[in-house]
Design a binder for these strands. Sequence first.
DNA 1: TCAAGCAAGTCAAACGATTGTCTAACGAGC
DNA 2: GCTCGTTAGACAATCGTTTGACTTGCTTGA
Lengths: 343, 343
Amino acid sequence: MPSRPSRERAAKVTLNDVAMVAGVDRSVVSRVINGDPNLSVRQETRQRVLDAIDRLGYRPNAAARSLRTARAYMFGLVIPDFANPVYAEIIKGAERAAGNLGYGLMTASSGGVQLGLAHHLALLGQGRVDGLLFAGEETGHELEQLRTSAVPWLLVNRRIEGSRRYVVLDDERGSGLAVEHMVALGHRRIAHLAGPEGADTARRRRAGYTAAMTEAGLNPDPRHVVHADYTSDGGAAAMTALLRIEPRPTAVVVANVASAVGALHTLHEAGLSVPGDLSVIAIHDMPLAGHLVPALTTVRMPLGRLGERALELLATSNLTDDITEVVTEPVDVVVRASTAPPR
Amino acid sequence: MPSRPSRERAAKVTLNDVAMVAGVDRSVVSRVINGDPNLSVRQETRQRVLDAIDRLGYRPNAAARSLRTARAYMFGLVIPDFANPVYAEIIKGAERAAGNLGYGLMTASSGGVQLGLAHHLALLGQGRVDGLLFAGEETGHELEQLRTSAVPWLLVNRRIEGSRRYVVLDDERGSGLAVEHMVALGHRRIAHLAGPEGADTARRRRAGYTAAMTEAGLNPDPRHVVHADYTSDGGAAAMTALLRIEPRPTAVVVANVASAVGALHTLHEAGLSVPGDLSVIAIHDMPLAGHLVPALTTVRMPLGRLGERALELLATSNLTDDITEVVTEPVDVVVRASTAPPR
DNA sequence: TCAAGCAAGTCAAACGATTGTCTAACGAGC
DNA sequence: GCTCGTTAGACAATCGTTTGACTTGCTTGA
């Protein structure tokens, strides 16, 4: 009868221990575990090995395995801030893709600890992960360090000057659709509450806004573009600034949901009705949007797919390959209650 | 002049390579890097070593180091869902604490991939991390597996039957304060929009609600306690149910912010005013709360401190120690616009 | 002059797993 | 009875670091 009884101590059990108990060489145990096709064993021996593993509660040592095989079966993802729900979607997508490939994914944030990229590279060094995804706010200067690193890396959701390894979304199209939605409703004075001036995503969304305005035959008033920092506070402040402009815009395309939350709050405080006095649309969709007051119309971007694709590319690329991909999957407008024709 | 020029290839550089270039034994390089006090070396030699490291772009191999020292200088944290902002605060706290101790923290989610704890244990096995924090939704059954694991672990923000290793917040006090706030405003029919029935945090918050109601001489109507699942959708549905009760409560203590978002939305749809018709307070504070419409009164709980403390305890505990700590740090009411005296 | 002491390193054995190469035993075929 | 081919597993090198023990050549004190 196979030994079902409780496994033993939590002490360190190695391949050698298992081999002793099973009465075989440790190489046999290793091959049994890994299903090595070169191994031939009797069924009975194999069972002895499996029983020993079970009874001792053996767990392979990841460090030893990584050292020997030069693979960690683990990828890393560095994001700026866990509180930003945009990254949650990206992480989920990347985790899904990693799981499908039989890998794990570990995420760390660069924002909290002010130690920067160098810290992460030191920690993640070699041997800990097989590749690194950066969805962060690293400067070009910091990325310089990546060049001397032996682990494959890839920028997610942002490009950086001089880098030829990135995956991004079609942000131009995202804000373009937002503008088109407003235009279709009959708006002509459409403002843009943009992201931080330095950010690549903000730049691309702004470009999409401008292009779509021009395409619609509207000449965007330069005062109608204000920058915020992708936070609720920033969005609130920027909206306050927008409200001072005469004539006031009748619609605003907000660069992300967090800013839109702040913007809606400002409008409420100012006694303005949405969408009565002003229509609001934001880039990126997420569950929160549907529950805001009023429910927020958004442009749904394939953030999960972005994370997924980034990981796939990372897993299959050489360190020296160029990777410059735009994930164009579905981008569409989710119409809710915050947009309507102008009065 | 020290060699400033560009570092070289991204190929694999080992301690041996550095030793060759510097003309010393690899043990010297190792000791220089790690600041071994037993080493005595001439300043000039040390500099040769440092130059070689710099020139070759050497980065220590984490796997080899972990294998040899049996320490990974890395902790792991498993959460159920990155989209839940409550965990963001916990993660940040834990990352901070890890950084202070010279460790890294890697976070993974258990929810996305439906592989469960076993998968994570296999991946994180031995040698990859020095300890594991679980802020998740593991069942007691799953935790059984932890018992055979050699890596120290700790439950965060939840207890589980039979486990003596956890850190939690004072959730009783949190919802107690919420009730007291409502009572102080003059409310008497105070409902509780609770969390999922099975969840430990929900149970404790509910207990705090009941105790505070009793303490205030109010006999809580059992129909005034409804359960939701900590999501916006759940909160919306539960609020709908609450509104059907006669006489209607004048105040509601919501178990978390996500549910409160859904609840506010339901109230808005129902044409009820907050706080005019109903006052709303939620457990946990976060930036979003201040920007909702209306701005949400909350009970601020020290989530960051919880993560921080959990990591500290994990780092300093033996696998066999009991750890049963309640983080009681500041818990206070953040008054915003969603609560007022009853009409 | 000699031993002791110190400075400046060197040597080599681990850590735990993987994997290419070997070997012993056995049965089949002639 | 002998060779050959399999089967079933054993052997041992290796991955890159760390670290206790050891060596070598000087200096110093008596």
